[in-house]
Amino acid sequence: MKGILLVNLGSPDSPNPKDVKEYLGEFLMDERVIDVPLWARTLLVKGIILNTRPKASAAAYQKIWWEEGSPLIVISKRLQKKIQHKVENYPVALAMRYGSMTIKKGLQELVDKGVDEVLLIPLYPQFAMATTETILVLAEQIRKTHFPNIKITDFPAFYNNPDYIEVLSNSISKHLEGKTYEHLLFSYHGVPERHIFKSDVTKSHCKIDGSCCATPSSAHEFCYRHQCLEVTRLVAKKLQLKTGTYSTSFQSRLGFDPWLQPYTDRTIERLGKQGIKNMAIVTPAFVSDCLETLEEIAMEGQEIFHEIGGKEFTTIPCLNDDDPWVELLSKWIMNWAEPSIAERV
């Protein structure tokens, strides 16, 4: 029997500093998030970050926490429920890479329903060490240890899938309808530059020099930077955006190592200083709104823009559980489960 496991990032169980500290500890101790030797990661995370950051992070979570719980979890559950309705013959489970909704629990839920073949869908459009790769590696470890009799098929990154680009573009267009804006900023979650070099299967193509991402290469299959820039390019083409009216940036940097640039906060500030009074921002590295989109972008980003003299700051929601996104995911699932009837979904 076939089943589907949707996997997103995760969330603390509550915005309480204790729960946030536990969540951050698991997240930041992941060797694919902070990819330094264990001793250095332990010193940094347990010796410094977890003694300083949980209180501030908890305050940020408290700003965006919904009555039903974590926005990311609530939205993901809504998405799961809608997809289950669409693909009713195939169990759909939901898991998170970090936190209490573990991948092991998600797989166990499917196995208990008789599933022995799983389509694992990381809910990230682009491939990255700290997102897709860590999910796939952990899922395979869990499968080998606890569920050796099941087969897992990994759903690939869909950043350049024409149907995805159309759904994303239509969503952006819908939320900008009637809005006046001078610049559309595509903000993606940042990663350290070394992650790009580590993911380069050619070991020579990626140079982050302004041209490598536009030069065809097998490295692009696992290059997060290329895939982000490609989403911007494809959406801009779809929406017929004029050169100079849109740009790409990267948010959420941590530590002092070089991260992908330009940085979102500095880009917002620069746009304001250049005289932009009305701007919009979209976050296509996420399919579900979360702390980074609701607090860092919608609140902090807006504050930066207003402080520099900007007026209208329009934040475009993620795809969340919008019906076109549900339809597309369901179509992909049915194409895997029953290719002959996929078009009927």
Score class of each variant (00 low, 15 high):
residue 253 R to M: 10
residue 292 E to T: 02
residue 189 H to F: 05
residue 329 L to Q: 09
residue 125 P to A: 10
residue 198 K to V: 01
residue 339 P to E: 01
residue 24 L to F: 06
residue 130 A to D: 09
residue 89 N to A: 08
residue 50 L to V: 09
residue 257 D to W: 00
residue 195 H to A: 14
residue 10 G to D: 12
residue 104 K to A: 14
residue 159 Y to H: 13
residue 26 E to M: 03
residue 330 S to W: 14
residue 45 V to P: 01
residue 268 I to H: 04
residue 17 P to V: 08
residue 191 V to I: 15
residue 233 R to D: 14
residue 33 V to N: 05
residue 260 L to S: 12
residue 25 G to L: 11
residue 170 N to E: 15
residue 17 P to W: 08
residue 197 F to E: 13
residue 146 H to R: 06
residue 248 T to D: 10
residue 278 N to H: 15
residue 341 I to M: 04
residue 171 S to Q: 12
residue 248 T to I: 04
residue 312 E to P: 00
residue 149 N to V: 03
residue 74 V to Q: 08
residue 11 S to N: 11
residue 273 K to A: 14
residue 74 V to T: 10
residue 64 I to F: 03
residue 312 E to Y: 11
residue 83 I to W: 05
residue 209 D to T: 04
residue 278 N to L: 08
residue 221 E to G: 04
residue 264 T to V: 04
residue 227 Q to D: 11
residue 319 L to A: 07
residue 156 P to Y: 09
residue 93 A to K: 10
residue 122 P to M: 08
residue 260 L to N: 05
residue 213 C to M: 09
residue 329 L to H: 06
residue 216 P to Y: 01
residue 4 I to D: 00
residue 289 D to F: 04
residue 180 T to N: 13
residue 54 P to K: 06
residue 239 L to H: 02
residue 63 K to G: 01
residue 48 I to E: 01
residue 9 L to E: 13
residue 24 L to T: 14
residue 260 L to E: 07
residue 300 E to W: 01
residue 11 S to F: 04
residue 37 P to H: 02
residue 56 A to V: 13
residue 303 E to A: 08
residue 317 P to G: 10
residue 183 H to N: 14
residue 84 Q to N: 12
residue 124 Y to S: 08
residue 43 L to P: 05
residue 79 L to T: 15
residue 221 E to C: 03
residue 29 M to E: 15
residue 215 T to G: 12
residue 41 R to L: 07
residue 86 K to W: 14
residue 124 Y to T: 06
residue 28 L to N: 05
residue 157 A to M: 07
residue 46 K to N: 15
residue 46 K to V: 06
residue 246 Y to V: 06
residue 189 H to V: 14
residue 32 R to F: 07
residue 137 V to S: 06
